[in-house]
């Protein structure tokens, strides 16, 4: 079947099987391998991306179900080669070690900050409770999200601060 959706602002069309999962559509059909593929059981959250503005686990959404919808992946986060505030926060606070969970963490953190620009630690921990980090880096991930909340303009603001 033919599926058309918008991914990071660009309309894409592919001929796929109805059973193709969105995570594989994004990675294998579009070559956007920033969205990682982990547990396959909607537990680990590394496949998190946005569909119509909501953060979802793309291993448990069919590509067909995303047809006609607006998808955003981690590749679309940086603008004009500049890291956004959440990405800069992960850099500043050493929010990653192996980096496998990082794309999902970033997409979830951005979703949280859209809804709550100044979340406290408990709110951040609740928001990322569906994203697993096996390097046990939660402390720094929480700090990274707080950094982004405190520096909404990202690196530009950090320089002037």
């Amino acid at each position: 079947m033919q599926v058309t959706m918008t991914v990071n602002g660009d309309e894409v069309t592919r001929d796929v099987e109805p059973r193709m999962l969105l995570v594989h559509f994004i990675r294998d059909e579009l070559g956007l391998t920033g969205t990682h593929w982990g547990c396959d059981t909607s537990n680990c959250g590394t496949c998190t991306l946005w569909v119509d503005g909501e953060a979802v686990k793309s291993c448990t959404v069919l590509a067909a179900m995303a047809g006609g919808r607006d998808v955003h992946t981690v590749e679309g986060v940086a603008q004009n080669g500049e890291l956004d505030a959440v990405q800069q926060g992960f850099l500043e606070e050493h929010g990653l070690q192996c980096g496998f969970c990082t794309p999902g963490m970033i997409m979830t953190a951005k979703w949280l900050l859209e809804r709550d620009p100044d979340p406290d630690e408990g709110t951040i921990r609740e928001a990322i409770s569906g994203n697993l980090c096996r390097c046990t880096g939660y402390e720094n991930i929480v700090r990274a999200v707080r950094w982004a909340a405190e520096h909404p303009a990202g690196a530009d603001e950090e320089v002037s601060a």
């Binding site: 909607s42 959250g45 998190t48 953060a55 979802v56 686990k57 979830t108 928001a127 409770s129 569906g130």
Partner: peptide, 9 residues
């Protein structure tokens, strides 16, 4: 119930 991302769907 599950986690915030699953609850979105």
């Amino acid at each position: 119930i599950a986690d915030p991302l699953v609850r979105n769907r």
